[in-house]
């Protein structure tokens, strides 16, 4: 109930800002401007098509990020538990650590441009695929550390219990450690998804017409900044609130599953 109230107030506040500033700053009325920015020449299509691209990049990148992140985290935490470390495992661990350091240490927009303008420069890979890969890689590094913290948060006794029953390392991870780790990291994962959705707004740097770029194009056509930008902001806000609600629902569902 509280959530719904929050949503209501947020939207109401946004609308009030839009209305009041429009009233104060603009000579012509709101409806005219609205029509000019969104209806005329079917300009709303920049927003809806852009939104689809934004959602597409976000969803694929999240999937890549989850798979990559879990893999890296499992490898890294397995390395931490093995007693006899050899040159092979040490090298892998070093590479993974370097990967995380580099990805987290450089701006996502630079990574995106490197992937598209350098790595795929001579190939025929299209922009959106480059964005899938770039954002996926970026989020995998963050998710890896989140998942690793989750694995470490599970009582080591759980691992011993699984192994002592006769489960393999992988089996213990899968049946006992990851389900508990997942529950612990859900809020942090939700946060990462939210960050990722908003991060995709840099896709315009390689010429993708996503939601942000779509708003930008409207602005360049109508020479008005206010309405297109606010509309774009509102749409991001709604996506993020929707995501927050989903994560919250999942959290509550997992909670009833014992403690």
């Amino acid at each position: 109930m509280k959530r719904k109230k929050n949503l209501f107030f947020a939207i109401l506040a946004m609308l009030l800002i839009i209305m009041s500033t429009t009233v104060v700053s603009a000579q012509s009325n709101f409806i005219d401007k609205f029509h000019h920015n969104f209806i005329a020449d079917q300009r709303w299509k920049y927003l809806t098509n852009g939104l689809l691209i934004t959602l597409e990049i976000s969803v694929v990148a999240v999937l890549i990020g989850i798979v990559g992140g879990f893999l890296i985290a499992i490898l890294r935490s397995t390395f931490d538990t093995i007693e006899k470390k050899n040159i092979f495992t040490k090298t892998i661990n070093w590479i993974l650590k370097a990967y995380i350091t580099v990805i987290r240490g450089t701006p996502a927009v630079i990574q995106l441009m490197i992937i598209y303008f350098v790595v795929f420069a001579t190939t025929n890979v299209d922009k959106v695929t480059a964005a899938f890969i770039s954002f996926g890689i970026n989020s995998s590094a963050y998710i890896a550390e989140i998942v690793r913290s989750g694995i470490m948060s599970v009582d080591p006794g759980q691992f011993e219990a699984g192994r002592s029953l006769g489960f393999s390392h992988a089996g213990t991870m899968w049946h006992f450690i990851l389900p508990q780790a997942f529950k612990n990291i859900l809020p942090a994962l939700g946060n990462e998804f939210i960050v990722l959705v908003k991060e995709t707004s840099i896709a315009g740097y390689i010429g993708i017409v996503d939601l942000t770029k779509g708003g930008d194009i409207i602005r360049s056509r109508t020479y008005e900044a206010f309405l297109p930008l606010i509309a774009v902001a509102l749409i991001y806000l709604v996506i993020v609130m929707f995501l927050t609600m989903l994560v919250g629902k999942l959290e509550r569902r997992l909670k009833t599953d014992g403690k």
């Binding site: 006794g157 759980q158 219990a161 002592s164 029953l165 006769g166 006992f176 389900p179 599953d257």
Partner: peptide, 22 residues
């Protein structure tokens, strides 16, 4: 060792039951 451990169970001081399972 995974197979051998199945013949030799362990009961821990802190129980180590799986909390996410009934």
């Amino acid at each position: 060792i995974n197979q051998q451990r199945q013949k030799m169970m362990m009961v821990f001081q802190h129980f180590n039951l799986f909390p996410h399972k009934t």
